[in-house]
Amino acid sequence: MSTKPRVSSAIPGEEPSFGTALAHQPGLASAFGALYGEFWSKGTLDHRTKEITRLRNARVTDCGF
């Protein structure tokens, strides 16, 4: 799989990244930020468990980004 950015940055002066690509759809980006922020900042799971599963998922999907 390509490791070159395939979608341009929607934010002038910033490199293409997950965040700047998502910014092509500001409504989606904002809603995603609210959801993901809620997941990380609150809830019954401890932070360590969330981080371990996040990294394991990245490994399983072979996501170097």
Binding site: G27, L28, A31, L35, F39, K42
Partner: peptide, 18 residues
């Protein structure tokens, strides 16, 4: 809280006819 935010995120596909 997560359900409502997930609705808002997923629902945008149809609500805003993206």
């Amino acid at each position: 809280e997560l359900r409502d935010l997930y609705r808002a995120f997923y629902g945008k596909l149809w609500d805003e006819q993206l």
